[in-house]
């Protein structure tokens, strides 16, 4: 019967990973990715590896989303800057 929990956790991880790939916006991907992390933590714990689950939780719940979202913000800022520059050149011509 313990296999039920393992099977459920595996299914959840597979579904979350697929959903993370199917979402194409990096910020939204970060959201799905955090759920994938939660699922992995459950899977590791169900497989009796709570140490690994705890590592996954520690890294995946706040630090990874923070790094991804900060990177997205920086990239978008560069994109906006270039856009504004191009617009400016267009006007002056």
């Amino acid at each position: 019967m313990d296999d039920v929990l393992g099977g459920l956790a595996l299914l959840f991880v597979a579904a979350a990973a697929t959903a993370a790939v199917l979402n194409r916006d990096p910020a939204r991907q970060a959201l799905v990715l955090s759920l994938l992390g939660l699922g992995l933590a459950v899977l590791f714990t169900v497989l009796q590896a709570p140490d690994v689950g705890l590592s996954q939780l520690a890294v995946g719940s706040a630090i990874t989303p923070l790094m991804i979202l900060l990177t997205v913000r920086k990239v978008r800022r560069i994109g906006r800057g270039r856009q504004a520059e191009d617009d400016g050149k267009g006007r002056s011509r």
Partner: peptide
Amino acid sequence: LALVVSVLGPAGTLVFVRL
């Protein structure tokens, strides 16, 4: 594990709210 989630879970959600 539950103890860690009880503080890091809300912190993670606040990261999304913030950014």
